[in-house]
Amino acid sequence: MEHILGNISILTAAPVLNLGLLIDGVLIGSIFALAAYGLALVWGVMNVKNLAQGDFIMLGGYLTWSLGRHGINPLFGVPGAVVLLWGIGWVVYRLVVSKVITRDLFTSLLATFGVAIMIQQSLNLAFGPDTQSAHSGLPTWQLAGGLVTIPVTRVIGFGLAVALALAVIVFMKNSRMGQAIRATAQDARAARVLGIDTEKVYSFTFCLNAAICGAAGALVALVWNVQPFLGTTYSIRLFVIVTAAGFGNLPAVIAAGFGMGVFEQFGGFLLGAEFQQALIVLLLLGVLAVRQWQYLRVRQAVQ
């Protein structure tokens, strides 16, 4: 308890530290927002809650990390992860998701949980349980006399996340496929009647989501670190973001992603890094409780 109060007093004594945490939170939150957008996409279009989301991120991260280890600039991990994860997403869709898409929601949840366990255990076997991080060899900016440090990779990561998110949004708005995806999300049967191949739309959506996760993972490896079992934490984080925002509400999803980043930075600073995971999970329970209370007033269930 004292050390929490101590940390609070540090923050009030040196307000510039708040700025540092805020900047860090926003830079990292951009990655959360990107991956959360992918989750919201699959959730809204296919009504599948993908629990392997975080493990897709870790796959992208490990690809980037191993590129860096073989002497290639890890920034190439971003396009590499997009391609690799697109392929993996297609395989997972064909073998698992396409079979459970019409069944009840728990079935798809559990099936993707199985995929998640397979991915994290395979990563553990291939790369070991250590925490890894890709080094791009870029400098760190020092502001306010060294109290605020901004690694350039985080800024690049932020820029890439924003660029990718914009690309996806423009694609969804303007392209033929994007329109088909939105139509399917609104009413799959009507879309089929109007000649949209919904099976193809589903497959494309899932692959697109996996690719987005891959890119997010590459950024995670650059600005943070990867570890085989961190995937579940990411899945829960993204689930919290999308649940809090509502999956149909894109701006809210992005805002919640940034909010999550900032919340985590401050929470981690105040309570200590070992509470980070517990903090995320407790936030999940909090969000679910609030949602439930909101629905209770109109006598509906959160489903």
Partner: peptide
């Protein structure tokens, strides 16, 4: 009281959250 009014996947994720939270809190 927290999770039983949730349905389907929300219930599943909420309960998973409880188990993970317990493990994390006891670990520290």
């Amino acid at each position: 009281w927290i999770v039983l009014a949730l349905r389907g996947p929300y219930f599943a994720i909420g309960t998973l959250g409880i188990a993970i939270a317990a493990a994390e809190l006891i670990s520290s």
